[in-house]
Design a protein around this nucleic acid. Structure first.
Length: 768
RNA sequence: GGGCUCAUAGCUCAGUUGGUUAGAGCGUUGCAUUGACAUUGCAAAGGUCAGAGAUUCGAAUUCUCUUGGGCCCACCA
């Protein structure tokens, strides 16, 4: 053995040996209860961050512990397509090449992203191996595998039949110039100075930057405690407007800031996110006045057909003329949302797909709520339960459609002849064309409307503007369809016929990953599903308890009437060394690779595990990583010393089991007694998910009891053969206890010890 | 603004149902050291447990308030 432990040499080949010998596959044993963990799938095209390392460290610890105890143990690895995130990363790449997603049809874009992910997913898989994750690679899943898509489609179909799916309106970020919607994370925010208009509204004066949306107002809101306006709350008021007088209800809601403007807000649920939310709370009518071309619609009366900007100017002039404008603050600073191309975003209410989470005929969420409330699923640490339960109580219907390409397409088709009013956006040569499908199929000479973006000059000179498109042309370049809320549809995986166009929305990632326990185990009839469902522990970061954990529980009960797992263990977030959240812009990101290189995987894993005891967030514990690196070296040298002493021993060292117990000294008896106590402690701590305490106990015992005391005493002993037999036994027992925490070094030492077996991984776990 | 959470040694953190002298790692100081390990050993210093009040025979631990952090969510017409 070398004088110092060299992780760079020892960590390399051991993983390949384990994998080759098939240790990661479960050993069936009908008499024992299986222990199963499904790995929360990291982003397939990403690379490993410290949170992933902590996740793997904890899961591998539990898995190796149970495996050594002889339980049929299964850990399934996977990766996630990470819908929005991946699409944005990919689009950034396109941008570097001077391209954009609008140059691709939906299908081509999907295929390009697929290639991109395939090119990149090797990295994270390699890193899982590097971390020592003892996962069963033969059961590996990617969230866009055919089997996953099939299950998700089947579930959707069942939910449609069970009347748990409906189409409803939902507020999205829509760009009228691009003709498409954007996700929140795609938006840019820009500070601007705009006029703030104080207009007269019946008995009130209220401030707004968007007077043109007043035609969509369906209420006026004040703060509940605002004494100035208390007498109006709940009443209907008459308002003189530009298109005659109308009536609005006055509501009281906390979202109003009594200190802003006059403390009175006009509520336009169709065109403002805040107002939309307020509208849901107060059952207000959603009255859209802006259409998908960014123009005011017929509800705006004489302003119909004007663009938003033109309408604003005209409305302001007319208000002033009518004496309805109190004053204008020209220097109002606020933030506006812009699309990637820099156009103003119009918050719009568009039809989306929803899950009814608490329908009277069948509640999707209720069993999931009760499972935790009644303790059928146990959450560690327990105080996180509140987050889950509160979320479940407040949960509203779940919008499951996303206007992304990269994801699982919602398996729905629209018959064109029955849905001529449906808008589509598609690529035709170098142009992007948008319009209602019925009109696009006629020539624009007949008055059909459309938006064509691209080279305007070229369009004017060509016949592109007058063309009547065929359905095949539209479908070939199809980028997006905008079905109406009541469009008729059929559910089918494949096209039901040429006269249909597909839904282009994809599922919310959580709709598919919420079925992770089902798709990884081959629901409904695979052997794995029968054997390993429900699984044992769901181990993940607490920040996705609402997004992910809750969905898995809901789907689990909906499809199988059982919880998908018994325990949920939520680890804390790893913050940067400076105590702030890791972020690229702060430059404080801890790259696990650097620590693996310098201190080794074992030290990194152990440092992270010891750095958090109770699931709270914690700063990256650099000095613990270093401490455990030193610890590795310490136990390496203990092994070295034992081997050396055995070689030098005059008498043959007997095996521990054959030593006559009467020959034990009081030191021997004491250390053996302490060893028993340690074994018990490690077991009870691990059962309680107190990993740091178990780690600390082993560390203290090996270093300060065996090395500092017992070994020193051995040096003086007359009966060295007995002492060495005891020492080897105690040391080997500790290596086994430590293996789930520090798999590489314990295996490396084990392989050098006398009378060793094939691998420490398959040694029986110590019992007291 | 809503929710959760934290404040314990110079630093980073444990302290699980309230119960002897409040612990660890790193750091600091002194001494030691050729039968493994300087990535070592022995020893020491260092805490009125953020502040105030309450409950209790007893509070770092329970409750209330104050002060100051962190994170998540929602974001201002």
């Amino acid at each position: 053995m070398d004088k110092a432990y060299n992780h760079k040499i020892e960590e390399k080949h051991l993983y390949a040996m384990w994998e080759k010998n098939g240790y990661f596959k479960p050993k069936k044993n009908p008499k024992k209860k299986p222990f199963t963990i499904l790995m929360p799938p990291p982003n397939a095209s990403g690379k490993m961050h410290t949170g992933n390392v902590l996740m793997i460290a904890i899961e591998d610890l539990l898995i190796r512990w149970h495996r050594m105890k002889g339980d049929p143990t299964l850990w399934i690895p996977g990766t996630d397509h990470a819908g929005t995130e991946t699409q944005i990363t990919f689009e950034k790449q396109l941008k570097k090449q001077g391209k954009s997603r609008f140059q691709y049809s939906r299908e081509d874009l999907y295929n390009e992203i697929w290639k991109f992910v395939q090119d990149n997913k090797g990295q994270i898989e390699g890193q899982m191996r590097e971390m020592g994750a003892s996962v069963d690679w033969s059961r590996y899943r990617f969230t866009l595998d055919d089997a996953v898509i099939k299950t998700v489609h089947t579930t959707f179909d069942k939910m449609v039949k069970d009347d748990l799916i409906y189409r409803g309106n939902y507020m999205v970020n829509y760009c009228p110039k691009c003709g498409t919607t954007y996700s929140d994370v795609e938006l840019k925010h820009e500070e601007r100075i705009d006029p703030l208009y104080y207009m007269k509204y019946g008995p009130f004066i209220l401030a707004t930057v968007r007077p043109e949306t007043k035609f969509g107002d369906t209420a006026i809101a004040v703060h509940p405690t605002d004494k100035r306006y208390k007498k109006y709350v709940g009443k209907d008021i008459e308002v003189e407007g530009l298109n005659g007088t109308f009536t609005l209800k006055v509501i009281a809601d906390d979202f109003v800031d009594p200190k802003f403007g006059t403390g009175v807000v006009k509520v336009t649920p169709a065109h403002d996110k805040n107002d939309y939310e307020a509208g849901l709370r107060h059952n207000l009518e959603v009255k859209p006045v802006i259409d998908l071309n960014g123009k005011l619609n017929e509800k705006a009366g004489k302003y119909a057909g004007l663009s938003v900007n033109d309408a604003r100017k005209k409305v302001v002039l007319d208000l002033e003329e009518k004496g309805l404008m109190e004053k204008i603050d020209l220097k109002y600073l606020h933030t506006v949302s812009l699309c990637k191309a820099g156009h103003a975003i119009e918050p719009m209410v568009l039809p989306n797909w929803f899950v009814k989470v608490d329908a009277p005929h069948k509640s999707f969420k209720k069993p999931a709520y009760e499972a935790v409330k009644k303790g059928k699923i146990k959450i560690f640490p327990k105080w996180r339960e509140i987050t889950y339960l509160r979320w479940m109580e407040e949960m509203r219907d779940w919008p499951i459609s996303r206007q992304n390409v990269w994801g699982i397409r919602i398996p729905v088709w629209y018959k064109v002849a029955d849905n001529l009013k449906v808008r589509v956006l598609f690529k035709y040569n170098e142009f992007n064309v948008a319009g209602e499908i019925g009109e696009l199929m006629q020539s624009s000479k007949d008055g059909a409307k459309r938006i064509i973006t691209g080279d305007q000059e070229k369009i004017a000179g060509s016949d592109g503007g007058t063309k009547a498109f065929t359905l095949a042309e539209i479908k070939q370049g199809l980028q997006r369809v905008f079905p109406l809320v009541d469009s008729s549809f059929v559910v089918a995986n494949d096209s039901p016929g040429d006269e249909f166009i597909p839904e282009t929305d994809t599922f919310d990632t959580w709709f598919s990953s919420g079925q992770w326990p089902l798709v990884t185990l081959g629901y409904p009839d695979a052997d794995d599903f029968k054997t390993y469902y429900p699984t044992s522990v769901m181990e993940t970061g607490w920040e996705i308890i609402r997004l992910w954990v809750s969905r898995m529980v809901m789907f689990g009960y909906y499809l199988t009437d059982k919880p998908p797992f018994e325990y949920v263990y939520l680890h804390g977030m790893v913050r940067a060394i400076d105590g702030r959240k890791m972020s690229k812009s702060l430059g404080n990101v801890v790259n696990p690779e650097d620590y693996v290189e310098q201190y080794g995987v074992d030290a990194l894993r152990m440092g992270l595990i010891a750095g958090t005891a109770n699931g709270k967030d914690f700063n990256f514990p650099k000095d613990r990583v270093i401490a455990y690196k030193h610890f590795g070296n310490k136990i390496w040298n203990m092994g070295r010393f034992i081997l050396m002493m055995r070689e030098q021993s005059e008498k043959e060292v007997p095996s521990f089991a054959t030593v006559d117990q009467k020959k034990f000294t009081k030191e021997d008896k004491a250390v053996l007694k302490e060893l028993d106590a340690l074994i018990k402690k490690v077991d009870t701590e691990l059962e309680k998910f107190r990993f740091a305490d178990a780690a600390e106990a082993i560390y203290q015992f090996m270093w300060h009891t065996i090395a500092d005391k017992y070994i020193e005493q051995v040096k003086e002993r007359e009966d060295k053969d007995i002492a060495l037999a005891v020492l080897l036994h105690v040391y080997m027992t500790n290596l086994k206890l430590l293996h789930p925490f520090m798999p590489f070094i314990t295996e490396a030492i084990y392989q050098q010890m006398p009378e060793h077996g094939e691998s420490i991984m398959i040694e029986p776990y110590p019992t007291a």
